[in-house]
């Protein structure tokens, strides 16, 4: 039984990001597992709106006191919005990683790229495996 909250309506990456597709656009964040591993998050480096990235490219960094992790884009696209609340209250990522803690909104280049990502059950197994 997994210790982490892993919503069933999202897709997941091996680097512990989630993506929620809504038509041509998608919201992206880090998972409950990722925030738990990092512990208290103190800073999020956000990309500039208008920049395009390819899938798996690093678009920013999440930092806790003891660790730093790159944020990778699950699918290619252009940044259309960033969550500016994270600048002053990065702890939202610990408290509410899937709703208040979204990191960027992206206009997807090819929404079908998301199909190759893990679904909730595959990601749950992946987290359990790592303990």
């Amino acid at each position: 039984m997994s210790n982490w909250n892993i919503p069933t309506d999202l897709h997941y990456t091996k680097t512990d990001e989630w993506i929620k597709v809504d038509g041509q656009e998608a919201l992206i964040g880090i998972t409950d597992y990722a925030q738990d591993q990092l512990s208290d998050i103190v800073f999020v480096e956000l990309p500039e709106v208008g920049t395009s990235y390819s899938a798996n490219q690093s678009l920013g960094v999440v930092e806790s006191v003891k660790a730093a992790a790159d944020i990778h884009l699950p699918a290619s696209g252009e940044i259309v919005a960033t969550n500016n609340d994270l600048a002053d209250t990065p702890e939202i990522l610990n408290q509410d990683p899937y709703e208040g803690g979204w990191i960027v909104r992206v206009k997807l280049a090819d929404p079908s790229e998301v199909d190759s990502l893990m679904d909730a059950s595959a990601y749950t197994a992946y987290c359990d495996e790592r303990g």
Partner: peptide, 12 residues
Amino acid sequence: LSTREQHIRREK
């Protein structure tokens, strides 16, 4: 801010 530093970020 030690996450900037070599013992955590290593090559980055």
